[in-house]
């Protein structure tokens, strides 16, 4: 929420939009893959925590990959 109206000339991605969507993408990735990992762990009967940990790592990695593709390309 630290967006200020004082920037005049920037490229098409405004800084506030970029900063907002970085956090959004990360949160989305971690939440959705953490949930899928938890679900997989419940179904496969893995020890508690393994599924959600792996899922969250995977989601964070995917989200960072996506951010690098989307925002800095």
């Amino acid at each position: 929420m630290a967006d200020n109206p004082h920037r005049k000339s920037s490229d098409e991605h405004s800084s506030e939009g970029a900063a907002g969507s970085v956090v959004g993408y990360l949160l989305a990735g971690i939440v959705v893959w953490g949930f899928l990992g938890w679900l997989a762990g419940e179904i496969l009967g893995l020890p508690t925590g393994i599924g959600i940990a792996v899922g969250m790592m995977l989601g964070a990695a995917g989200a960072i990959y996506l951010i690098m593709k989307r925002l800095s390309a």
């Binding site: 956090v23 993408y25 939440v31 959600i52 969250m56 690098m68 800095s72």
Partner: peptide, 25 residues
Amino acid sequence: RTWLVLGFALVEALALFGLVLAFAV
């Protein structure tokens, strides 16, 4: 700016792990 976004994302991911786990576990 590329490295800014990458570094910010890598660091922020840790905070979000904590946020998600606070709700999940």
